[in-house]
Simulated assay, not measured.
Amino acid sequence: MVDRPKKPSALPTSAGSSMPPAPQVDISPSSDRVTATLPTGESCEVLLYGATLVSWKSEGGQRENLWMSDAAKVDGSKAVRGGIPLVFPVFGPPPSSSHLPQHGFARISRWEFLGKSTSESDSSVQLDFGLMSSNLSPEMRAAWPCEFGVIYSVTLGRRSLETRVVVRNEGAAAWEFMWLWHTYLRVEDIHQTHLTGLSSTPYHDRVASAHLTSEPSPTPLTITSETDRVYHPPDPQSTITVHTPAPRYEITRENLPDVVVWNPWEEKAKGMSDFEPKDGWENMLCVEEGSVREGVRLEGGEAWEGGVTVRLVEEG
């Protein structure tokens, strides 16, 4: 877990001159997480377990933008409840013939920290993480015997968080996969939150019926009960905006055709042992970007890339 090799040496400075402050990247003493902090105080924190983003702070480090359950397990005993877990290579329950866990193994595997890079032009820092088939446990290798490599990048900016992934087939045989960012956004009040950018989009309502295709709604989406919908925006470049009593979230996607909107609401939250506080559903909304309606097929040697950028924009 070191920086990239062949990193250029620091430039010498002359007397009376100084270099501008640079982003700081730290690895925890237990080597279980990586934290990046900008000179202005913004930060993000990534567990190596699952490469799960568990914190993204803006406004000089004063505002937390991700919701985390107080009962989330961050010791590797189960998937993290909150933050941004990674869903790969299946979404939801696996096929009956498979022994894969729900939502796959990416979120419950230990990733490798590959290094960092910084940009002086926009005061950003990028963290890179990797997962290969050789990193998997024998049980997961048996459940999904495909040769693969995944590079996951997290870029922290002053008022933005960009996440990108490259999935590569490292073998000769073709295989299919699904990918999803299971993003838990923190909102001030779910009752005063609505989404725009999905109003003309058909969706599958997984609460009413996993097979029901609903007609597009002409109004902004408000959350008034348990919600679990898979939207299929006709324009993959469209912006989805989460309006909440704070800076709004503007979400753009690249090569990701599907968007999941999820909130467990009161009754379901009560039945989830790792969901705390039980009224936490009032302060979170999952807006999840990925490719989950059908699998992405990769032939031997092929690669697939996707990305999400979340920007904070003042209302008004």
Results as ranks from 00 to 15, higher is better:
Pro95Leu: 01
Trp281Asp: 06
Thr52Asp: 06
Thr309Trp: 08
Met68Thr: 07
Leu66Arg: 10
Leu195Asp: 13
Leu180Lys: 06
His182Arg: 01
Ala79Val: 07
Tyr203Gly: 03
Arg110Ala: 07
Val242Asp: 15
Val296Trp: 02
Ala210Lys: 13
Pro85Cys: 02
Phe91Tyr: 04
Glu294Leu: 00
Glu267Leu: 00
Lys78Met: 04
Leu131Lys: 10
Ala10Glu: 14
Thr227Met: 09
Glu305Cys: 08
Thr37Ile: 11
Leu66Met: 09
Thr244Ile: 02
Ser58Gln: 13
Arg293Lys: 13
Thr224Ile: 04
Ser225Cys: 07
Asp26Ile: 01
Trp181Leu: 07
Ser96Ala: 14
Cys44Gly: 11
Trp67Cys: 03
Pro8Phe: 00
Ser98His: 11
Gly76Trp: 05
Ala208Cys: 02
Pro93Tyr: 05
Ala79Leu: 02
Lys6Asn: 15
Val46Trp: 07
Val150Gln: 10
Asp279Lys: 03
Phe177Ser: 12
Val310Ile: 15
Trp265Ser: 11
Ser98Trp: 10
Thr219Trp: 02
Pro8Lys: 09
Ser18Gln: 14
Ala36Gln: 11
Met284Phe: 04
Thr193Phe: 10
Val34Leu: 12
Ser291Met: 08
Lys116Cys: 14
Leu285Val: 10
Arg229Ser: 06
Thr241Asn: 04
Pro234Glu: 14
Gly41Ile: 06
Ser238Lys: 07
Pro5Arg: 08
Ser121Tyr: 06
Arg293Pro: 01
Gln62Val: 00
Glu289Thr: 15
Tyr249Gly: 05
